[in-house]
Design a protein around this nucleic acid. Structure first.
Lengths: 219, 219
DNA sequence: ACCTGAACACCGTTCAAGT
DNA sequence: ACCTGAACACCGTTCAAGT
């Protein structure tokens, strides 16, 4: 809403919205490693310090960007059956965050970074209760699912990053130097990493995790 | 072993070992955020570039530090019963990495960063096979356990970091602004976070994850 | 062979001043 | 009220030179 009093002082050239738009563009077009206050200012033909008039600091900027992205997704349609609802909740949390590799630090606590995320988390715990867990166990179950989800995202993000910057990360090196005689089973993992990281992988693991939690809770 | 030929050129003042010792000290006494090539050089009364004669770059330095730490732990005694062996393997991986919050990036791929870690991973997959999973499923199971473990570590690390630097992270703020009427179950999580992150939490979740995976695999 | 010094190309943020 | 410019206190790394 417009303020009743007339504006005073210098007219604004920047705005929080414009800043977020520019930041979002750098993020998608050039990747998080190129998003800096200085770079962003240059992009907007302004100075670094002008930005600090619209956001508290870089942390706040990233948080706002995260809320912007996760808030844009349409609210998930959740099935009625409680186990399915729990699975669907986890999947949409996973999906929602899969586009924000740069926000891992903000994500870590528990996935409650934006209003839509909060809704999903609440729904998941609720679904767990409907599956027969008491509230404490339901919250614990959510925590385990969150840990699994975050771990999966992290592995995925880092692999993508490695791919982008030409392949030879510590992990790739360790993989190549692995003796397949001493480590026959582990060596198999190496060749499979791509497939393992594929679309169905998270889902299949998630079902195991959820079923394990539900059995533990109702036993 | 000593080289047969006499040393030529300038005598060395630095050595990889001395560098690692200094870095290790900074890491434990001041935290990872204070470990920089410049700081490290200053600590050793040398120059940043002297370090590059002994390690390729900062990434390699961190990797060496990780191997140093994880390699120091005594090899875990693993129980004979396969399910227990799988659990014990995961626990010792978890324990081993719990002291290296600064190495998350190197960890991400799959926990095979050091020789002892490789042994444990191989043992875990082997244990999963002994539980009745085929090698593919066993590897997948390991992947899920790793994701869960890594996620748990990450949440733990970030919470500790938040504690250290005075409490008010994005997550804490989001927690305070949470409406307990709209989110009764989620709000409960807030109050419980410390307990949930306690010692038994990882273990309890791990059992659920493992049992879920085993059931999925042998069904 | 091992080390130094200066330089390059960056960071986030503070502070005092301008309009 | 909003923005600028200069400065502070850092980064990792390259490159040419010294002993």
């Amino acid at each position: 809403m417009e303020s009743g009093s007339r504006r005073v002082g210098r007219p604004r050239r920047l705005s929080r919205e414009a800043i977020l738009r520019s930041a979002e563009r750098i993020l998608t077009e050039e990747g998080a490693e190129h998003l800096s206050m200085r770079r962003l200012a240059k992009d907007m033909s302004s100075t670094p310090m002008a930005l600090y008039h619209h956001v508290k600091d870089k942390d706040e900027l990233l948080l706002l960007l995260l809320e912007l992205r996760t808030g844009r997704l349409p609210p998930a349609e959740l099935p009625r059956e409680p186990r399915e609802r729990l699975l669907a909740g986890a999947r949409s949390l996973h999906e929602m965050l899969a586009t924000c590799p740069w926000a891992v630090d903000a994500l870590t606590p528990d996935g409650r970074v934006s209003a839509p995320a909060r809704r999903i988390v609440e729904t998941m715990i609720d679904a767990a209760v409907d599956c027969g867990l008491n509230p404490d166990r339901a919250r614990h179950a959510y925590g385990v699912i969150w840990n699994y989800t975050l771990g999966e995202l992290l592995v995925r993000f880092n692999r993508e990053r490695a791919r982008r910057q030409g392949d030879s990360t510590p992990w790739e090196r360790a993989m190549r130097s692995l003796d397949p005689v001493a480590f026959p089973l582990l060596a198999g993992l190496g060749g499979q990493l791509t497939e393992i990281a594929g679309a169905g992988h998270y889902q299949r693991g998630l079902e195991a995790v959820v079923d394990g939690l539900l059995r533990q809770g109702v036993a």
